[in-house]
Every structure is written in structure tokens, then in C-alpha cells.
Design a protein around this nucleic acid. Structure first.
Lengths: 215, 215
DNA sequence: GTCTATAAATCGATAGAC
DNA sequence: GTCTATCGATTTATAGAC
């Protein structure tokens, strides 16, 4: 958006938002090393030093992009689940449905997470902390769901959290490829077995199971 | 390995192997765009034009690396399962155990697959074909296992194939981070439920299930 | 807040000697 | 098969005018 108008002066926050949006797209497509500041600047319609006026370095730019998107996500999920704290299944299904509407953002995180394995990558520590945090939050929710009888108590919460995060990451990758897999459908079916099994176990009590074997 | 000896002349195939090894490490660490030919050349102990004598371009180099490693993998798996065709569970467990011994290679594929989402990436078509092929092969094996009663027939083979590939990819990513997750342990436990469930279903016949709820 | 100009380094790739 | 030399383009970042 926005045709190039040379030297047009914009309010600080507005220009910053433009830059963050353009940078997110660029980093998603070509990664950190494959993206030049000139790429981003051109998308915004600003000169490359003009871009560096708002973010002091390329490293600062990608970190700002990642943190801004995380904060945006947190706001969205807080809004959807205002009062009640949702079950793990509901939480992940809503998140996946949201992600299905923004492939660029999913690609940004897929690419950046992989790149960040390099200790010299600017987002290396960011992603290490992020994965620890996500697993912790998810494990805590799993434990709550287990107490409510929504998830089979045989699962170790931390293990199931790692598995579900892995599944989502992997499905996102294949969903971004061609032909795309049915990311949300596959996740939903996997999650349905978690709750269905616990429902059977909790509802029928112990001693005799349902007809459905397993997943 | 190999301390730098200027101008040392090596046989074609040997030098090519050196280059492929060094390039695999470099691309794994910093990705395609983040790796320079000079990086790779220095690791090998050769000049940058000397490197380009063996591979005509950077693009040709990364493609050669990826194809060579795929072929190596195929040879290894053929060797392990010489006569019998293994079950899906055995096949994936062996593959995961092998991968656990070579984090650099796992990282190469994790990073390259994510980068390759960009249509302009040299390995874009390579990875699209690769994922299609892997899912097909895995789905065919799943179908065979289902006929043998090793895997619950409720699963759509193509769907389970996508899910297992996703799980492995995602676990690899978390295994490469710190703290690392127990990649093979988590995979094994997930796979155990696939076979245990079918075992129960097949062994006890239909109509009444076991005590174990689900996964 | 945005620009032009430019520094200083590095990139992939080629030419040609040995 | 390997090198030195080099081209031409691109990179991040800074200096300073407006």
C-alpha cells in the first residue's frame, strides 16, 4: 500500500508501523540474511537511511518485528477468551484458525525460528526463551485440563506440550508448502482424540473402555 | 580437518567431498543467504575461485549438498533394513536414532526447508518434491502396517503420514534448541500408542476395548 | 523525519597464469 | 586443480544538509 511520495513526513508511530509490516513480509520471504534494509525501505517507500532513523540496525528491526507480533497475538487471544480460561483444545484450535488467515506471519516465525538456531542470529535468545515459555504455559493448561477430566492423566504435561508445539510447527511448515496440508483439520483431529479419550475414561469410569481403540 | 596447505592438488572426487562436508556445516549454521562461498572455501582450505571450479555456483553447491545427503540417507536405511521391509514404527525409530547422532545434518534440513518456502530459493522445488515423496512413502507403509494389524485402521494413511512428518520436524527443531527436548523419546512414545492400540484392537477383536483410554 | 552522498566491507562470479 | 587479481554489484551504517 501507499504509493511512493518522496520526502513525505509521517508521524513517528505511524511510520514505525509501516516499517514493521513491510519488514515482517520481507523477513518472512527471504529470512534475516536474505533481506536487505533497502528491500524493506523500498516496500515502505522510504530511503534506506530513512529506515535506519526509526530502527538503529537490522538486528534491532527484526527483533522489533518479532516482539511486536508476539504482543499482537497475546492481545488477540486475550480478547477472544476474555473471561473464561479456555481448554487446551479450544485454545490451540482458535490459534490455528487465526494462523490460517495469515500465512505470512506463520512463515515469518517458521523461517526465523529455524534461522535462530545459529547462536550468532539476532533472535537466537529470543526463540529459546519463546519456546520455553510456550511449553510452560501449555503444560500448565494441560495439567488444569487433566484435573477437569478433559485430558487423559497418563500424559506428562511437559511432554504433551512439547509434542503439540512440535506438531503445530511441523504442520505449519507443510501447510506453507504446495500442495498444502490441512493444517487445522489435522490438528483438530489429533486434539479430538485427547479429549474424547479422557471423556470416555472419565464418563465411564475405570474398568471397561469404549469401543474406539486409540488414535 | 586438514590444515591449510596452499595450492595442494587433490583428486576431483575427494576435493568435492571435502567441499560438500564443509558446505553442509556452513549452510546448516547460517543458511543459504547467510553463508558466503568464502566461508566454505576457508573451511576446506581452498580459495574461493578454487571452490567454484568444483561447483559452478552457490546455487549448484547447496543443491548438491542436499541431494548428496539424501542419497546417503537412503543408502543407510537400505543397509539397516536389508531384507525385510520394516514397520513404520521401526523405520521412524531407526531414522530418529540416526538423526540424534548428527545434529548438524538435522539443522541443515530444518533451516533449508524453512528457507525454501521462498519461491526464489534454490531449493524451493527440491523441498516441495521431497515432502510429497516422503509423505507418499510413509502413507504406503502405514497402509501396509494397517493390513498387518499394526496400526489402527481408522487412520487415513495420508493424514497420519503428514502428522508424523510434522511431529518429527517439530521435535527436531526443539531438539536443536536449548534446553533440548527428548526427540527420540517423545517420538517413540507417540509411535508406541499407534501400535499398542492396534495390538489391543486386533488381539481382543472388536466389541470390547482395553483399559487404556487413548494416547 | 527524510534525504543525498558516501564510506568501508563483502558479495558472487570471471579472466587468465601456473 | 588451484591460484591471484579483479570486476561490478550490493551490503550495513554514518555524516550532514534540509
Amino acid at each position: 500500500m501507499a504509493e511512493r511520495i518522496e520526502g513525505l513526513r509521517l508521524p513517528r508511530t505511524q511510520r514505525r508501523q509501516q516499517i514493521l509490516t513491510a519488514a515482517a513480509q520481507a523477513f518472512a520471504e527471504t529470512g534475516f540474511h536474505g533481506t536487505s534494509l533497502a528491500d524493506v525501505a523500498t516496500r515502505v517507500g522510504v530511503s534506506q537511511p530513512g529506515l535506519l532513523h526509526h530502527f538503529p540496525s537490522k538486528q534491532a528491526l527484526i527483533l522489533a518485528v518479532l516482539e511486536e507480533r508476539d504482543a499482537e497475538d497475546a492481545r488477540y487471544l486475550d480478547e477472544v477468551f476474555q473471561q473464561a480460561d479456555p481448554s487446551v483444545v479450544d485454545w490451540l484450535v482458535v490459534l490455528c484458525a487465526k494462523n490460517a488467515q495469515r500465512p505470512e506471519l506463520v512463515q515469518l516465525y517458521t523461517v526465523a525460528a529455524a534461522e535462530s538456531l545459529d547462536p550468532a542470529h539476532p533472535a537466537h535468545e529470543f526463540f529459546q526463551r519463546r519456546y520455553q515459555r510456550i511449553r510452560q504455559v501449555l503444560a500448565a493448561r494441560i495439567e488444569l485440563d487433566q484435573q477437569k477430566g478433559l485430558i487423559d492423566p497418563v500424559h506428562v504435561p511437559e511432554d504433551l506440550a512439547s509434542e503439540l508445539v512440535a506438531l503445530m510447527d511441523g504442520l505449519q511448515l507443510q501447510w506453507l508448502m504446495r500442495p498444502p496440508v490441512d493444517m487445522c483439520g489435522l490438528l483438530r483431529r489429533r486434539l479430538a482424540r485427547l479429549s474424547a479419550a479422557a471423556g470416555v475414561a472419565a464418563g465411564v469410569a475405570a474398568g471397561h473402555g469404549g469401543d474406539r481403540s486409540d488414535d
